[in-house]
């Protein structure tokens, strides 16, 4: 059984990546249930998906239950900390998306290093990838979610194989962008293996 919390900001492709991950699990013959949080979250708010792989009825992940926290934004990775336990694998992007209260100068965006240090006091397994930089290297910033999927596939905790994940990715991305998405996936995968 693997419980996964996927978090990010509206527009980052959280739903897309969660679907790829779940479809890959199903293709591998595992059961998967996924919960989407929609609605007003699409207007730049927090988007969260929960995925439960294995013999679980619930589609929601409770506190300290997440085996993987898969984050598209560093502050949202940190916000999900109550879901983590001592063996949780964090896979997170290091590129901040600044919320409006910060952009209008009312509050400050927290120090990323301090947040990551605190995550490490809970679990040593932190894979922090500069997804935007690798995405641009792959050909377009829009492939950041493929970079992150690759990074996740490169961790030992990932419940699905690299092959099934690639297959699910191929079935989901528009054919036009397939090549750069596959490149982005490989860049993420390599990064995770080396870190």
């Amino acid at each position: 059984m693997t419980r996964i919390v996927v978090v990010g900001v509206g527009g980052q492709g959280v739903l897309f990546a969660s679907k790829v991950l779940s479809e890959a699990a199903l293709a591998e013959g595992k059961n998967a249930v996924m919960s989407e949080v929609h609605g007003m979250a699409q207007r730049g708010g927090v988007v969260m998906c929960n995925i439960c792989v294995g013999c679980i009825e619930s589609s929601l992940v409770g506190d300290a239950e997440a085996d993987i926290i898969f984050a598209f934004e560093p502050m949202e990775a940190y916000r999900a900390l109550p879901k983590a336990h001592s063996g949780t694998r964090f896979v997170t992007s290091t590129s901040p998306v600044v919320p409006v209260v910060v952009s209008i100068g009312k509050q400050k965006y927290p120090d990323i290093k301090a947040m990551f240090d605190e995550i490490k006091t809970v679990t040593p397994k932190l894979t922090a990838v500069d997804a935007d930089a690798l995405a641009i290297q792959a050909g377009s910033y829009v492939t950041a979610n493929s970079v992150l999927l690759g990074a996740l596939a490169g961790t030992p905790e990932c419940p699905v194989s690299r092959e099934k994940m690639l297959e699910a990715l191929k079935n989901t991305v528009p054919p036009k962008t397939l090549e750069i998405n596959l490149k982005a996936f490989e860049l993420g995968l390599e990064f995770a293996k080396q870190h």
């Binding site: 300290a64 502050m75 940190y78 900390l81 336990h85 409006v100 605190e118």
Partner: peptide
């Protein structure tokens, strides 16, 4: 109940939805 739930120590700015 799960043990050792870690609540973030740093006060986080909220991220409510906003007009695009």
């Amino acid at each position: 109940m799960p043990k050792n739930i870690h609540q973030p120590k740093i006060q986080l700015p909220p991220r409510p939805p906003s007009l695009c």
